[in-house]
Amino acid sequence: MRLPPLNALRAFEAAARHSSVHKAAQELYVTPAAISHQIKALEEYLGVMLFKRTPRRITLTPAGEACLPKLTAAFAQMADAVAAAQQQIHTGRVMVSVAPALAAKWLIPKLAKFRDLHGDIDLRISARQTMVDRVRGELDAGSNLLEGGDVAIRLGEGHYPGHVSHKLFTSYSLPICSPKLLEGPTPLRTPDDLRHHTLLHYESDIALADVGRPTWASWLKAAGVRGINTRRGPTFNHVALALQAAADGLGVVLGVPIMASEEIADGTLVAPFDLALPTGGSYYLLHTEAAEREPSIMAFRDWVLSEARSEPWAEPKQIGSAPLLDGETGS
């Protein structure tokens, strides 16, 4: 017998287990409409109704009740089979899925320390835009949260069913610039002094990646500064480029300090003001419960947690109010 599409079976199993289309959508990181569409397609494929639908709830039909237990068990067996295969293949190897910006600006600069401690571990880094939860929902909702990794570092709200998660640090933005700008004819000493300096911006090529991130307009309003044209200054498509421009003294970027911790530590960049605005998420390290039986994976996990605990920019010193909606000028 030919099986129905796997995504349709997953959608039905999650909705039946939760007795809720919305909760199934949250678990699978898709929209409720997508879950409903998959269930309808499955019912058409099978030629039977799996749910009784009312305005407020869904309940299983006899056909749905007969299907659910075996389907839940089948998904559990598939997960065990994949874990068993990975255990054989990945002994001594750790695959880490991580957002590109965090990989480039925070994780990779620290890897020499990990190598010195665990030179026998074959560490592999996979940079993926979909490690940002709001981007994953748009681009690749069908994949699992680890996306092929033994460990994942995700930016999101921390709701990761079926996984062990550890918060690393909060994501927030504040002004960052070269120490050169603190001197000279128009030294940057108060937020109002920003009117005399170039404002640097960055916008991702993936629009959803910028959702919730503070703008210069929102930061200046939180700082009580008015009358500055927040649209002036160059825009870059990656945070690393904007931070490099700031390091070169081209202006001030509203950046995430965790991405510049190395440069701030060595004095290449400074954060002249403590006022920070949240970007709408935090960084979390994820793995499965089965991974806790793998010494190599646990060695990497423990090392990352140690680095996060010692990170001076893990939490903001002064948090401001929520950012404005895009399009507000702050003037």
Rank of each mutant, 00 (worst) to 15 (best):
L285H: 05
L46T: 02
E147P: 04
D150T: 05
S331G: 10
L9T: 03
M49T: 06
Y172H: 15
K23C: 04
A260S: 14
K40G: 03
N229Y: 11
G148L: 10
S282E: 07
T279Y: 02
K52Q: 10
I39F: 03
W216P: 04
L275Y: 04
S19T: 05
T198D: 06
E289V: 06
P161G: 10
E294C: 13
L188T: 02
L208H: 14
S171H: 05
I297H: 00
S310V: 01
S321N: 11
I206M: 07
D80L: 14
T230I: 13
H90T: 09
V96H: 00
L42H: 04
A79H: 11
L42S: 02
L6E: 14
Q77E: 15
A76I: 05
F300I: 03
L254A: 01
T190C: 00
F300H: 00
A25N: 04
G212F: 11
E147T: 05
L188C: 01
C177T: 15
I39W: 02
A24Y: 11
I319R: 15
E183W: 03
I297E: 01
A83T: 13
R213F: 02
G148P: 01
A15H: 05
E65Q: 07
E44M: 12
H287Y: 12
D302F: 00
N229D: 15
R93H: 11
L305E: 01
D192V: 09
A104S: 10
G149Y: 06
W216E: 06
G149C: 09
G162A: 07
L6V: 05
P272T: 00
S310M: 13
Y202W: 15
L277H: 07
H166E: 13
E203S: 09
